[in-house]
Design a protein around this nucleic acid. Structure first.
Lengths: 111, 111
DNA sequence: CTAACATTCAACCAAAAGGATGAATATATT
DNA sequence: AATATATTCATCCTTTTGGTTGAATGTTAG
């Protein structure tokens, strides 16, 4: 099993609409911090912090050219999270169907 | 587009190893609060709070029988989150491949 | 050199998260 | 009725989060 910290960071980073919007923007191509911040009403600094969260989760990579920081989207963490979710959903969802689960519950309740 | 609040709550609830462990336990069948809390070193009350977070995200349903509260896992939010992730990953990941993205970036940089 | 620009750093703040403990509530057992 | 059990409620504490503003840093342009 892979370190759960990574998954924590990925899911936490994705659990915010601002950050998802940032990622969506970056999925269309590289952009500078100011460009990324432009559509939002919040301050540039606030966006800068969101970017930091995304970087910590490795969902965004930064490339510095002079005074400009180019941000790009990295797909690996989302792929990993998707993989975890698919596997988990399969395991939690279909392996025990409703009837099986009911039987097991009854069995446990009479122990 | 579906309300982002739901997705927020689901992802936030999943972004914690304790809560994922609780869900894993419940995926094997119903359990009471005390049973769910038993494996953890933290206090019962702390677990109770985690359960509340999971309920808010509709990942856990509660059925009260006398003084006992039976908790059960609900698969719908995880299914919805998986769906969102799959779609998003497809959209962000494969629709623009590396070359396309590179061209677009160069184009944007010369505007 | 100086001015403008891109970005972060440093405080500060309010709210939420994650935990502990002790009291309260409701139900079951004797 | 008295006690034990299952669970939450109410406080309190510390850390994190998400936001603000103002200053600092580094880079480019005039």
């Amino acid at each position: 099993m892979s370190a759960p910290r990574t998954l924590d960071r990925t899911l936490l980073a994705l659990a915010d609409p601002t950050r998802r919007a940032i990622l969506q923007r970056l999925s269309k191509g590289e952009a500078r911090v100011t460009e990324v911040a432009q559509p939002f009403t919040m301050s540039l600094n606030a966006v800068s912090k969101h970017i930091l969260v995304l970087e910590r989760a490795k969902l965004v990579k930064r490339r510095k050219v002079g005074r400009e920081h180019f941000l790009s989207y990295r797909s690996e963490p989302l792929e990993a999270a998707t993989k975890w979710m698919d596997e988990t959903r399969a395991f939690w969802g279909s392996r025990l169907d409703a009837l099986e689960r009911l039987l097991r519950e009854e069995n446990e309740n009479t122990k």
